[in-house]
Each structure stands twice: as C-alpha cells, then as structure tokens.
C-alpha cells in the first residue's frame, strides 16, 4: 500500500506515540502543580509587600516573563550542571515550565485577590485573625475559585508548549513522531497522529474550562 496515508503504519506507530503523549501530559501536570504553587507564593509576596523581597520578586517576574521559555529550558538543563546541579530532561523541563508559567499564574492570582472586597480584609482585621488565617481562611478561598478557569487556560497552553522541550532531549510525543518519521521516511502518519493526540486532549480540556468559566460567572 503506497497511498499518502498508510493505515497499517499508522496503527503500528500509535503505541509509541501514546507513550510519548504520557510524557507530555506528565510534564504538563507537574509543571502546572509547580506553576500554581509558586505563582501563589509570588502573588502573596507581591500583595503583602514583604519589604525588599517584593521588589526582588517583581524584578524576577518581569525578567522571566520577557525571556523565551526555550532559553530558560536551555539554561536550566545545560548551564546549571556547571554549578553542580544536574537535572534530567523531565525534571529540567518541569522546572522550566513551572517557573515560566508561575509568572503568569501569579498575575492571575493577583487579579483574583484584588477582586475580593476590601471589607473582607477589614472584617478579618477587626477579628484580629492571624495573617496566615486571613490568607488561607478568608481571602484565598474566595479568590482562587474565581480564577480557576484562567488557571485552566494556562494549563492548556502549557500542554501545547511541552514539545519545545525536545530541545533539551525530553522524549515527548512530538519527539517520538520526529524519530519515527526519520526512521521510516514517512512523516505523514506520525506527525498527523501526534497533532490529533494534542487535539484529543486539549479540546475536551478547553470545553471543561469554558464550562468552569460559565459556572464562575454564574456564581
């Protein structure tokens, strides 16, 4: 069979592509966890105006947001070993994604925190609640649900950026597709399937986020 699309070959390469997709999803999820946690810390430091520290954080966020993810991934993977920190592709990739997206999620959290009425801060102060309780008992439980859809959108765009990490040797789905194409001289099936797999994950995810948006808007 010599048409432009060979079903037999497509079926043959699918398992390898699916394994690649697993890595892509794993990198996305771990990167998201890091981005959500670190972004929250950055947002709190900025809002609480911790002396000195908040200037450092602001400078870091500006700098990190203005440089490409690819360069950051290279630095983490190839330059850090010079100072004695050697990371595998996945670990370096997750850290690169997490740091990069933390700069965006911190802005998302900031918007959510600012949307909490000032009266909530005042009521918490009037009850003498300790600072940690003001954040984790009063402000964040109101701020975070509102911004979940925005955070979800960043997860999806992070998912689509994982293939960049092939530059640091992460064997994710696009890397697998490229290798298969190179080995067989048949790029159509592996690359098409890789694209479809992305679609298969990000489309339902987008629908889910839109549904969350509607619910957040209604609530």
């Amino acid at each position: 069979m010599t048409g432009i699309w060979d079903w037999g070959y497509a079926v043959e390469v699918l398992p390898a592509l699916l394994r690649g997709l697993q890595v892509t999803v794993l990198a996305t999820l771990l990167g998201s966890v890091l981005a959500f946690a670190l972004g929250l810390v950055l947002a709190i430091v900025l809002r609480a105006r911790v002396p000195v520290l908040h200037r450092v954080v602001r400078a870091f966020v500006e700098f990190w947001r203005s440089t490409p993810l690819l360069v950051q991934a290279y630095v983490i993977y190839q330059v850090l070993p010079d100072v004695g920190i050697t990371l595998g592709s996945l670990a370096a990739g997750v850290i690169a994604l997490g740091l990069h997206y933390a700069c965006y999620t911190s802005e998302v959290y900031r918007a959510g925190i600012e949307a909490v009425p000032v009266g909530q801060w005042e009521a918490a102060a009037a009850l003498s609640l300790p600072r940690s309780r003001v954040w984790f008992g009063v402000i964040l439980p109101q701020a975070v649900p509102r911004v979940l859809p925005a955070l979800g959108n960043y997860v999806i765009s992070m998912f689509k950026e994982v293939p960049l990490l092939l530059a640091i040797g992460l064997v994710e789905v696009v890397t697998v597709a490229r290798q298969l194409s190179a080995d067989s001289f048949r790029p159509v099936e592996p690359l098409t399937l890789a694209g479809l797999l992305f679609l298969l994950v990000s489309l339902p995810a987008s629908i889910l986020v839109r549904r969350m948006e509607r619910r957040a808007g209604a609530g």
């Binding site: 009425p117 009266g119 909530q120 005042e122 009521a123 918490a124 102060a125 009037a126 009850l127 003498s128 008992g137 009063v138 439980p141 109101q142």
Partner: peptide, 16 residues
C-alpha cells in the same frame, strides 16, 4: 485590638 469588636455597614461576613 483583640478587646475591640466592630460591625460594618456592609456586614462583611465571610461568604466562604
């Protein structure tokens, strides 16, 4: 402040 309580015009109850 622990000895002082305040009630606000807008109630400011914690909705969560």
């Amino acid at each position: 402040r622990r000895t002082i309580g305040m009630v606000f015009q807008q109630f400011n109850l914690f909705p969560n």
